[in-house]
Design a protein around this nucleic acid. Structure first.
Lengths: 215, 215
DNA sequence: GTCTATAAATCGATAGAC
DNA sequence: GTCTATCGATTTATAGAC
């Protein structure tokens, strides 16, 4: 019997589909385990159990634990980047910054694990995505700072330092994901309801938009 | 020869002093290593090297890695708690909340490792200090929310939800410690200067105080 | 109270049958 | 492409001499 028998029984397209589906299952499990246990605390066995696969299969799809982690971080980074489309198309700070806050709060609710993995990566000195910080993120930041500065120059908002305003927006919106456990505990042990998420988003928007002098 | 010979050569007070000094050195090293590597990534060997002691000595002063970690987290928690003395003695939100922002920003600069250990602990579900969240922090939060609500009722500030305002203050001030590496990278790889820390603090204060309608 | 040596457990990664 | 068994390295913790 040929040990490669399955190669001839399963089409190339089928194998590609199996690979894509397994990679997705593994990445979802890895994101959760890395978020809840940290990189050092996460084990391939834990991720394998969460994904419902034998541990060896993880090494078949991702050569090392670090390669798997790297892919998780990259996926999150992509989500962050596209959260600011509202920024570029907005006529002014009310729509631009208000919309950015709404988009980032929605991401915090939808991708809490990804946000935590990102926070953990940065807190530990960005050993894996340092090059991204120095290239992509730096350019992204410079572009948005320019937009904010233009609004200031046009008199559309109070003269606020664009850099620190961006940091404030990142901090407040990601806090609801990264410190979600603390917020949940202070909410009587219950996750925030739809109404409470709306309340949080509206409060952040109200304070910031008033704080930059546009309402 | 008596193996306890040193007991008779060293006084009880001297031994207490040695213990206190060694515990301090170990705790300082542990705070830094836990912050930079995470709980799972930190090893007793790394902490011992950082402290300049043999690994076995750590186990002499702290029975387990978890007990050492627990003490590090507790120390940080105490620092957080006393950061809000300005809150209680202030006549209004300008001094109270403005002073709180200044105090928290100063702590972020002075204790960046502690802030990161706390953030990491909360992000991973607070396995060690969950009871503190449910008791001390909950009471602390309720007390400050009452003060803010009183200011709102007295017309001293705009009607802003006290709970989410507190979360915003925590998020923005701690961001400068927890995401310090990212901020440093976006600052050309250099730590923030004295002037830049002042600028950051003033920007946060200006936006928040204007945002709650007191300036 | 200090330190070396080591026991006991765990983890990342791989070999090799299927 | 799947899975069991296991190797080799690392880690927490301790034993025991000094």
């Amino acid at each position: 019997m040929n040990p490669n028998a399955q190669v001839s029984r399963i089409s190339k397209g089928k194998r590609t589909e199996i690979r894509r589906e397994n990679e997705r299952v593994i990445l979802d499990a890895a994101e959760k385990v890395f978020a809840e246990a940290g990189y050092g605390g996460a084990t391939m066995q834990l991720i394998a159990d969460m994904a419902g696969l034998p541990k060896a299969n993880l090494h078949y799809y991702f050569p090392t634990k670090e390669a798997l982690y790297r892919q998780v971080v990259r996926n999150i980074f992509e989500i962050w980047l596209h959260a600011a489309d509202t920024f570029d198309e907005a006529p002014g700070p009310v729509e631009g910054i208000g919309g950015y806050i709404e988009a980032k709060m929605a991401i915090s609710r939808r991708h809490p694990f990804g946000s935590k993995v990102w926070a953990s990566e940065v807190m530990h000195g960005a050993p894996v995505i340092q090059d991204y910080l120095e290239t992509t993120l730096r350019e992204w930041t410079a572009g948005r700072m320019a937009v904010i500065q233009r609004w200031v120059d046009e008199g559309k908002m109070a003269p606020v330092d664009p850099r620190h305003l961006l940091y404030m927006l990142w901090a407040m919106t990601q806090h609801y994901a990264d410190f979600g456990h603390q917020i949940e505990t202070l909410n009587g042990g219950r996750p925030l309801s739809d109404a409470q998420w709306r309340e949080a988003t509206e409060t952040v928007k109200a304070v910031i938009l008033r704080g930059i002098g546009v309402v």
